[in-house]
């Protein structure tokens, strides 16, 4: 029953899918005005999953610390809004620019230090990096230390704030998607895959592996930094451990969504984020008090029984059907 639908979808040209999706996304907040904030968070999840997959899926470097760029973004924008003395939208714009810039610089610095570390050592090093950042932020008075930072009030009428940030987040997710779509179509995309499959070989074939890895991480960092700046404003409050550098929520969700959708594909992380977010929003409220237990169980189940993800599962299914028909 599902196969005809999938076949139909597969034959649809990608531009048509993109146009339809774009129109739906633009109309969604007006069709479902009660869900604007949840929908904005959906785009945040899409950014999370996509940017994680740049390293995790395309380059084969599984990072547990990407949340650090998000956290830097949260704080950079908030500090600019607090200290610049500029009108709201000027401060916000400059803040987002600063977020992107600082995230970029952080990615270059951490990339130089960490991207030579391979395999599970890299995964654990990045895990440590993310948590260390949260702990340091929780002790730094300039950014509010453990009590976090509140963001300025949005200067519009009631409800306009949600709508405004919905569209900003949508724009970030869309630009991120299109950038990665372009990137994976260049020789740079192939080079990332080559490093994933055999890094020593890639180096022995003359690829500039260090530069490629660092630039790839920097690209995801920029989008995470921007998303952080916007997310802080959507929430209205930044807590160092539970929002900005939250390894136990955002940091894990990124990995989970990308795997759920299918690592190493363009659409997989997008689909994974949508499925995860909708499931989460539908069932989370029923799991009061058990949400994090459920998250842990979900990780274990997906990793054990569905590591290929939705895209991988679809590819297997198609292959099996092609084999059956032949």
């Amino acid at each position: 029953m599902i196969d005809p639908v999938l076949d139909r979808l597969r034959k649809t040209p990608e531009w048509l899918v993109l146009v339809v999706l774009g129109l739906v996304s633009l109309a969604a907040p007006f069709i479902m005005p009660g869900l604007v904030t949840q929908l904005a968070f959906l785009w945040l999840m899409v950014v999370f999953a996509q940017t994680w997959d740049v390293l995790g899926g395309q380059l084969g470097y599984n990072s547990f610390g990407n949340v650090i760029f998000f956290g830097i973004g949260c704080y950079a924008t908030a500090v600019m809004q607090r200290d610049s003395g500029l009108p709201y939208f000027d401060a916000l714009t400059l803040g987002l620019l600063l977020s992107a810039l600082l995230a970029l610089v952080a990615a270059l610095v951490f990339g130089a230090a960490l991207l030579g570390i391979r395999g599970h050592y890299f995964a654990i090093a990045t895990l440590g990096l993310g948590i260390a950042a949260g702990e340091l932020a929780a002790g730094w008075d300039y950014i509010g230390a453990g009590s976090g930072m509140s963001l300025p009030l949005f200067p519009g009428e009631l409800g306009s704030r949600e709508l405004f940030f919905y569209f900003v987040m949508l724009a970030i997710a869309a630009v991120c998607f299109l950038t990665l779509r372009w990137l994976y179509g260049t020789r740079f995309g192939l080079a990332m895959n080559a490093i994933r499959d055999d890094e020593d070989k890639a180096e022995a074939m003359g690829l500039h592996t260090t530069a490629i890895k660092t630039v790839a991480w920097a690209i995801s960092a920029v989008f995470l930094g921007l998303a952080g700046g916007v997310a802080g404003n959507m929430l209205g409050f930044i807590d160092p451990r539970d929002v900005a550098f939250s390894g136990a929520t955002f940091g894990v969700w990124m990995v989970l969504m990308a795997i759920l959708g299918g690592k190493g594909t363009l659409w997989g992380p997008v689909i994974g984020a949508i499925v995860f977010h909708i499931t989460k929003e539908l069932f989370w409220t029923y799991l009061l008090g058990w949400q994090r237990v459920a998250l842990g169980v979900l990780i274990v189940l997906i990793v054990l029984f569905f590591p290929q993800g939705i895209m991988g599962w679809l590819a297997d299914r198609r292959r099996a059907r092609a084999g059956g028909a032949a």
Binding site: G185, R187, F188, A191, N193, M205, H208
Partner: peptide, 17 residues
């Protein structure tokens, strides 16, 4: 990805299809 052009710097990789 094994071509001589792939040995170029990142900017050149970004320009190449």
């Amino acid at each position: 990805i094994s071509s001589r052009a792939s040995q170029g710097n990142v900017m050149s990789l970004l320009r190449l299809k």
